[in-house]
């Protein structure tokens, strides 16, 4: 299920599987060198890669379900927006405050919610995502409702701001690389093995001495931190936040990226985010049919390639052998 770069490199036949990653990295590099319009597109994709990487820990590694990750992106996004735009905090402090808030909320939400299983868990998390959306709309005095909050400063430390698009993109690329590296380290750790164990069978994991409840909760909190970070980055790059940015469509888009890239793989989130992020740019006429194409693509991938692009190279030789 999970593939580390190390095991892939040991088997030359699986090098093919690294092609999508090479493509994604090449796109990011091209955007950094080229500058221009593509920077916006790739920057957006990288932010989503961070979000999806967090989702991947909870869903790919631990095999759980969360339809409500947008709640934590909202917490990060609104914390950053309100603290920097309204109270004049430095961006970094806003991001940290948002992540701290997300951790507290994830603990409080996770404790009752993660006891649920199957479609109950799906629905419970979906409800949480929708409730946070409703709060963002209704809590006018803080969130400014549908109008949203604008005038959010760009990222920076002290007086030094990441003003140019290119500098921002390089920063996002570093954050994304660190995020993916962190998820990979996490997967390799004792904790990561515990997650994969409980995704296979909770009873078996419990028999091995894994505290299933606590392990799931920690995974949920970690993925909430990633979501919060992504939310903060998003509002700083765009300079604006409104409830629509953190609604249900964020979750659906993230799921599509996760499945296209390959759920449970380390590099899948980046690949999925770049491929899905580029789609509407490559096919210009597609813009009007964007959601239609995403939906159809998602169905086809779920049916015919449940492992996503990252797994295609791995699947190809196996299939040939099977025939």
């Amino acid at each position: 299920m999970a593939t580390s770069p190390a095991t892939i490199l040991r088997n030359p036949r699986q090098w093919l599987g690294q092609l999508p990653l090479a493509f994604a990295v090449a796109v990011v590099a091209y955007a950094i060198i080229d500058g221009g319009y593509i920077v916006t597109v790739v920057g957006f994709a990288l932010i989503y890669a961070v979000f999806v990487a967090g989702l991947n820990i909870f869903m790919g590694y631990a095999g759980q379900t969360s339809f409500g990750q947008n709640a934590f992106a909202a917490i990060g996004g609104y914390a950053s927006a309100v603290l920097t735009a309204t109270y004049g905090w430095p961006p970094l402090a806003g991001i940290v405050a948002g992540m701290a808030g997300a951790v507290v909320c994830a603990l409080l939400i996770g404790m009752p919610t993660l006891r649920l299983k199957g479609h109950y868990l799906a629905m419970g998390t979906l409800a949480i995502g929708l409730i946070v959306y409703e709060i963002a709309v209704e809590w006018q005095s803080v969130t400014n409702g549908y109008m949203g909050i604008s005038g959010i400063p760009p990222l920076g430390i002290g007086s030094w701001e990441l003003e140019s698009d290119r500098a921002q993109l390089i920063f996002l690329a570093i954050v994304t690389a660190l995020s993916l590296w962190a998820t990979w380290r996490l997967r390799q750790s004792r904790f990561g093995r515990a997650l994969v164990a409980l995704s296979g069978s909770e009873d078996a994991a419990r028999a091995l001495g894994i505290n299933v409840g606590r392990t799931k909760l920690i995974a949920f909190v970690i993925s909430a931190m990633f979501a919060s970070l992504a939310g903060s980055l998003l509002v700083h790059i765009v300079g604006f936040i409104s409830p629509e940015m953190i609604g249900m469509n964020m979750v659906i888009l993230a799921f599509t990226m996760l499945y296209v890239g390959g759920i449970g793989t380390t590099t899948g989130p980046l690949i999925g985010a770049v491929v899905i992020g580029l789609l509407p740019e490559v096919f210009r006429g597609l813009k009007d049919y964007q959601d239609l194409v995403y939906g159809t693509a998602l169905i086809l991938i779920l049916i015919y390639a449940p492992g996503g692009i990252a797994s295609l190279g791995r699947l190809a030789p196996k299939r040939r052998a099977a025939r």
């Binding site: 479609h119 799906a122 799921f255 499945y259 239609l292 939906g295 998602l298 449940p306």
Partner: peptide, 26 residues
């Protein structure tokens, strides 16, 4: 097709949700 491939509960939910989006957009 998902049923025949013994897809997990979550995949089924996601696929039907995607079907809903496709119908909405059409």
């Amino acid at each position: 097709p998902l049923w025949d491939r013994k897809a997990t509960m979550f995949v089924m939910i996601l696929a039907t949700l995607a079907a809903q989006i496709v119908i909405e957009r059409l």
